[in-house]
Write a protein that binds this DNA or RNA. Structure first.
Lengths: 350, 350
DNA sequence: GTTCTTAGAGAAAAGCTTTTCTCAAATTCG
DNA sequence: CGAATTTGAGAAAAGCTTTTCTCTAAGAAC
């Protein structure tokens, strides 16, 4: 270890300016200084402005730790997720952060993968740091995070993950999203709509399929056809092969896909067969994953789950709980939104 | 507002157990209790174990805010990024988090987009929360975050973003990565290697292109050909069209791409032309973005920038600085890694 | 001129933990 | 047995801010 070599960096850690420093510089007590800066208490206008000016000059920043200790409130929350790639939790995080930033609340992001030990460590860390509340998020609506969040003594909100019974949760309205897609096809005059979706082990797969069937039934369309498989592009290719290779009856003129990756596979497979999208077959995806949806040729019309809005709601609701307001428990479904691009024709009158 | 309706949730915020509670329950002073729990000071073994047992029983957790206030250390750091989709910053975050979790340090994740106002707000929030240090990350090696991090009075480390002069930074070794790819092609016996990459406005584009040229020159290969365009699949398609449509001389038997999306476009375009990958043309991508690399048919051989390792190093180095250790300033390039999948044949002797 | 009110500002406590100092009792040593 | 240690444990201060209470001096009212 070379002693005091010139070139090394050893961050000159400035002692932060404290209220006491301000008070001394202004020639008043810390009590007065505090009141001056918080527009509290009684004092001459002159004293108040003088203290404020000096505080600004010195670059005073109240020590949040001391405030938190006193107020029993850290202005900090934890966001727990198991979504490593951030596909779902990053938009949620964006919404949460957006809702909380201006209220002065910061967010600890903790990825627990699917590891209970990791989950416990993160939860312990959060409790030690005295977070005001926790938002639990994830990558699946029907799977629990690998942690027990009941009885933590602080508010918990579930956002896009399987909630505890009797808790407060925000989830996407998958039925509504599916309805949006199928109704869009119907409005466009499509006659034969199939649904290529994910594995049957996913609850949303069934919920969306039910909605799809219901809308078809409502409009007296051809019998529904639901094809389940992996959430992959490859499955999209395969499904198209199945649909068109040994087509005994009518071939579909519309495919509603369970996610954008499947949709992309479907679009590519259709193009490879010389079928035009959207002229011959319309395709709608699910998730509005820009990266996939925009790169597909043509770009995908798809369902957006409004995860950022969901995160925002979750953040605001958590804040209400932290403020001691009572909130009705239950699962709130937030509406999805149809994002129209080019994989599906425009309605006749458009 | 309905008063005390049964069904609403109003989190019963338990008053957390304090050291004082433990001390009272054990019939000792808080000083003794503290020392018992921290294995400090002198006391009967019996007293110590009794206090510890009671603490465990009561579920005592030292209040991190009080500790931080005293130690002048919050055990908290901020991770600043402008990478909304998390493509680059999530792996970095994973590494940082991994390095710091067991040291009891939590991470505030702050996305500042490219908005200086947002950046300032987040930095202010961090300083108020008294973070021990900041890691600045991003989505481009040659762009600054929209915030000024000099003179904050706390250590700052740059990880995968343009650093301030005279600071400490960790970046990927793009030249090395490019060399890895081209040398792999050469080892496979490829004769005509072209480079399809991103826009010339990116510094890494030039760095990788230079390395590509240097390796070719070293091996006395055909003159290099570098094609720059957007970072999109579509550009991959176009580039292949340009290369094969009006091919006057030899057509390439290997394409080294600037990212995985371009590589995917290239692979798809080659397949559409009836060329086999990897038999007729080998393709190597860059980034190892699983989502794209694994979905490509065949799956992409690509360069991984080891961003998680980079994040880990950044986290550990930040911790050193926080601990007051001196660190040599400068930019540290961390090696990339070749991930072999199937878009590029195996070496002859393999 | 005396008493009451109000204004202005400071002292002190609280929030929780850690650490240093102090002190009384017990033990060891000569 | 008296003196010197050692041991066990508590008191208090520090870290920083906010808030309540207290106090003095000035002004108002009679």
């Amino acid at each position: 270890m070379d002693d005091a070599s010139d070139s090394t960096i050893k961050t000159a850690r400035r002692r932060p300016v404290t209220l006491r420093d301000v008070a001394e510089a202004a020639g008043v007590s810390v009590a007065t200084a505090s009141k001056a800066l918080n527009d509290q208490g009684r004092m001459t206008a002159e004293t108040r402005t003088r203290v404020q000016a000096i505080a600004r000059e010195l670059g005073f920043r109240p020590n949040s730790l001391a405030q938190s200790l006193l107020r029993q409130r850290s202005f900090t929350i934890g966001l727990l997720t198991n979504d490593t790639y951030g596909r779902f939790s990053l938009p949620v995080m964006a919404g949460v952060s957006e809702a909380l930033l201006e209220k002065g609340v910061s967010v600890f992001l903790c990825n627990v993968e699917d590891d209970p030990r990791l989950g416990q460590m993160h939860v312990d860390a959060m409790l030690e740091k005295r977070v005001d509340g926790i938002i639990a998020s994830g990558k699946r609506l029907d799977r629990h995070l690998p942690v027990d969040l009941s009885n933590l003594g602080i508010p918990v909100i579930y956002a896009f993950t399987e909630p505890d019974p009797n808790s407060i949760a925000f989830v996407s309205d998958d039925e509504g999203g599916a309805r949006l897609a199928v109704e869009h096809f119907i409005a466009l005059g499509c006659r034969h709509i199939v649904h290529v979706t994910g594995p049957e082990t996913f609850a949303v797969v069934h919920r969306r399929a039910e909605a799809y069937r219901a809308v078809l039934a409502d409009h007296g369309r051809t019998p529904p056809r639901v094809m389940m498989g992996p959430w992959s592009e490859n499955w999209g290719h395969q499904a198209i092969a199945e649909l068109f290779d040994d087509a005994e009856g009518e071939t579909p003129d519309a495919v509603f896909c369970g996610n954008d990756q499947i949709a992309r596979g479907v679009v590519d497979a259709l193009r490879e067969r010389g079928l035009r999208v959207p002229e011959d077959v319309g395709v709608i995806g699910f998730d509005n994953w820009e990266i996939v949806a925009a790169a597909t040729r043509p770009p995908l019309t798809t369902i957006d789950m409004n995860l950022t809005a969901l995160g925002r709601e979750a953040g605001l609701t958590l804040l209400s709980l932290v403020d001691g307001k009572a909130v009705e428990p239950g699962i709130r479904k937030l509406p999805c939104r149809l994002v129209v691009r080019q994989s599906c024709g425009r309605p006749p009158g458009d």
